[in-house]
Every structure is written in C-alpha cells, then in structure tokens.
Amino acid sequence: MANKSSVFDMIGPVMIGPSSSHTAGVVRIGRAAIRVLGGIPEEATVTFYNSFARTYEGHGSDRAILGGLMDMKTDDANIKQAFEIAKEKGLKYSFKSIGNASVYHPNTVKLNLVKGDRKVEVLGESLGGGLINISTIDGFNADFSAQAHTLIIKADDTSGAIAFIASVIAQEKTNIATMSVSRKGKNDKACHVIEMDSGLQAITIEYLKSLPWISELIYIPDIDL
C-alpha cells in the first residue's frame, strides 16, 4: 500500500462508532468472510481473542461482526440493531472470548460459519483505522487486506500452476498487486492468494473453476463496494 493518504482518510471515513478498529474493521472482517462462505450464514460462532476478548461488548464489536455477516457496510445505521435483525433473518450466533493467544494479533476474531452444507473458518485481524487482514481460511494462510479484488484458489500442487493462473489473469489486463502461495504439507493442496487492482469477468472465474486441478475458487471483489 504505497498509496498516499486520501483527503477522505482525514475527513472520513463515514462510519458507525465508536472505534475504527473495534467497529469498522470488524464489520469489514464480517463482509470479507461472507464472500468466502458464499452468502449470509445460517450459523455463526464468533471467537474474540486477546484485546478483543474483554472489550468486544463495550465497543459493540459483537453487533459490528453480525452487521458485517449480514452484508451491512461500515456506515450502515442498522448495525446498532444487528441482534434484532439477525433474529429476524434467522441467523443463529454465539460469542466466545479467549485471552492470551500469543500467536494471534491483539485484535483477532475467528469466525466459524455455516450455510447449508458449506462450512468455513475465517481468521481476521483488525489492524486499526478500519484496515484488516484476513490471515487464514480453513487453516490455510491467506493474508489479504480485502482492499483490492482478491482471488483465492485451492489447487493441486503441480508445477506450472502459478504461471498458468497468472497468465489467465493477464488476459484480462488486470494488474496483480500481490500473490502468495502456501500449502499445508508437501503433497497437500496449495492455496494461491492473488490481490488484483481491478476485478475479473465472470467468464474468467468460471474457466478457472472448470479446470480439473483447481478444487476450489473463491473470488472476493472489493468488499467496500
């Protein structure tokens, strides 16, 4: 992010209070997570870690995460009524607090989400000023900011996979901002995380999904749009 600060970082953002890290950032973690899940969850287990563990209620981070999980934006006045709206929508939720998790960032939230047959676990960090990092998805290192358009691909760990994916993206004249690849074990699947300056067309996403060596593809357009 070599970008210079914007006038609207100084006079803004417009947001629901009280705190950019405890409300705005948490809403954004929720918005990123439902794009990983592929929709608004039926069940959400939310674990607040470390500094979040004791303060989430006072800062309204519990309402903020539910608001984000119901696709509310950071300036949505309905966030304050997130509990009531979740009940209406049939979103079941529970909260847990865990302290002293030294491997985690001070402001970390873990989301275990269920929608139909699909279950995901997303770990998000609120970095301050509303900025976030989605650190893991189902145990894979993801590490993306959700500021740009993000592509997450789980694929067989074969040679040439990275170059192939990059060349498909290049066809759309989309600039890759960051790209990382990680895997759990040597013969396990690799997880590619690619952040792009502009979005991809549906046809490109469908093509990548159709490839036999790609087992899962998650596309997360800019979460603030």
């Binding site: 953002p13 417009v14 947001m15 209070g17 009280p18 966030i79 304050k80």
Partner: peptide, 21 residues
C-alpha cells in the same frame, strides 16, 4: 456521544475525535 453510542459519524481525523469538527 453519537459515536460512543454506535451512531453514524465522520472520523475526522479519527472516530475518537469525531465531535470536534
């Protein structure tokens, strides 16, 4: 107070200082 009570404000420059401007 609106900020402290989960209402909509402009963080200018931050949420904690959102009453001054």
């Amino acid at each position: 107070e609106v900020n402290s009570c989960m209402g909509r404000v402009v963080a200018a420059p931050t949420a904690g200082a959102s009453g001054i401007l």
